[in-house]
Amino acid sequence: MKIDQSQPLEYSTQQNQMNILGFWIFLGAEIMLFGTLFASYFTLENGIGNGPSGAEIFEITPVLMETIILLTSSFTIGLAIHAMRIQNKKATLAFLAITLLLGLSFLGLEIYEFIHYYHEGATLQTSAFTAILLTTLGTHGAHVTFGLFWGLFIFLQIKKRGFTPETSNKSFIFSLYWHFLDVVWIFIFSFIYLKGMM
């Protein structure tokens, strides 16, 4: 494997570069995936049948907290990658851990939110609106959950193997993924919650 020293470690082999490009394309597909969910959401937004509307069930406090937590975690993963670039293993691991903990608390809040909806009588089966709402949020939540495990595995690998072209490449790609989830959340926050509450 040829290692190109002039590049940052995560770009240093051809395989690394291909992995990153491949992941960007994957994110393109993910945009289509969430785009389809959003399009369906806008279509079914008023299909509330006999169930509640968004304005009736949305609660600003947990949603705001979720937003702040996720935005912060996006910042900390950025710091982790920066630490990786300057080869500071301790800081990288610390920021990665903070990111994952923030992700975990985001997930906890989201679960709380779902339980709240359940008590309000907004379940998957209630109406087309609640179904698409929960599916959209759930798909994002599932991505976060997947990311938590993925991040944890990368954490363990950096801890064990240090910064190799592979581990740094994986960390960088993971950071792209995490930023992407943040961007999706901003859309969810603006076009589902804010629009729904107004």
Binding site: S40, T43, L44, S127, A128
Partner: peptide, 28 residues
């Protein structure tokens, strides 16, 4: 990805009782 979501919603409709594509409860 569009197919992925459509199939997911179809599965939900058939197996979890959602109403995405039903003509009742706001589905289309």
């Amino acid at each position: 990805p569009v197919l992925t979501i459509a199939l997911l919603m179809g599965t939900f409709d058939r197996q979890f009782g959602t109403h995405f594509f039903a003509s009742t409860n706001g589905g289309m």
